[in-house]
Write a protein that binds this DNA or RNA. Sequence first.
DNA 1: TACCAATGTTAACACTGTAAACATATTTGA
DNA 2: TCAAATATGTTTACAGTGTTAACATTGGTA
Lengths: 200, 200
Amino acid sequence: MNENQYHHGDLKKELIVQGIKLMNDVGLEKFSLRKVATMCGVSHAAPYKHFENKQTLIQAMNVYINDSFVNTMKQVVESYVDDPLTQIIELGKTYVSFMVENPDYFHYLFIGNFRFEIQISESSVCECENSYDIFRESAVAALMYLNRPKEEFTEDIIAMWAMVHGLTTMLVTQTIKKEDGYLNLVDSILRTKLSFFNVI
Amino acid sequence: MNENQYHHGDLKKELIVQGIKLMNDVGLEKFSLRKVATMCGVSHAAPYKHFENKQTLIQAMNVYINDSFVNTMKQVVESYVDDPLTQIIELGKTYVSFMVENPDYFHYLFIGNFRFEIQISESSVCECENSYDIFRESAVAALMYLNRPKEEFTEDIIAMWAMVHGLTTMLVTQTIKKEDGYLNLVDSILRTKLSFFNVI
DNA sequence: TACCAATGTTAACACTGTAAACATATTTGA
DNA sequence: TCAAATATGTTTACAGTGTTAACATTGGTA
């Protein structure tokens, strides 16, 4: 396709990419469709050929980020298929570090899941819709490995995910300071929980 | 003061109250200063005599809600001054149930702390600025009561708060379903953690 | 090649945040 | 007591926004 073309090529995707960039720069409050359009070198009404409205674009941005998050998680799962305990711990670390390193993504996923309908990517190859499902699946494997009673699975999994997500929140919102060894905290907390299972 | 008066009486406070109401109804995206002004029966520029801009009003709404949350927490603390273990557990339950019953408040505090500067209420009588401080203080008492090693306080407190906040998040975002006995979950998770301390 | 759907532009609208100039009420102090 | 100062409200104006409708251009396809 040409350089100075009337048609853009893949405007839909660039709207998402530039949209995320803009959101990072100016925040939700000052995020505007017209700015995104300008960033893509396109008239302010062009986005409406690809998205119903502003909310729909933001949703698409959410899906885009969620996919990238989910894929990162899946990679970790695949790296430790034969070691359930290490797997769930590394998964926890990845969960936390991904969000700490991309605090804006935390906003999107969070705010997005709140304010708008949750929408699942169709393009995603992943059979798990979201990060919680991946985490849960890994947790189940670890609990089975530890011969935990099945009737307590639910509570154990919730406790573990809650710790990981809660810790993430504290770090991203700077309720606690992000020191160099913050990942050891994840390790330690999850390991305590897991070894607690083991001892009993 | 008169009924059909030129001056409103206490516009500043009503802007906050109506602002919260509007935010509950339409969400952040459609929240507008002009609507709030209309709800207060006042011209669209009147709010600028009380708040610098839209963000400042939203901040004030955050502070208002945070105060109400903190006060609720403080009441619990006072109800169990002589029983540190029950206190921290009840505090956890209150934390969760307050947010589950007021999911919009969860948004405000969360988004507010993210998007804008954290601003502490001047009017609050409470010496603790935020809910985390209250939770931490209570947790410290419980840990001392259990004779936990002081060098592990930090990690223990983080683990407990993370669980409570993480669980709250799961319930509010409906990652897990809010069943009738959801508060027992808080009880159970925290109690497990605390009795774990005790056993060792 | 001629049409058609896809994708872009331009123009228009109502609504928004914000500022400036103006109006009225309340407080203050000689 | 009552004018002046201050606090609080209104009106007007403007640039930026989301969204729609009418129009223009392109690329693919019958």
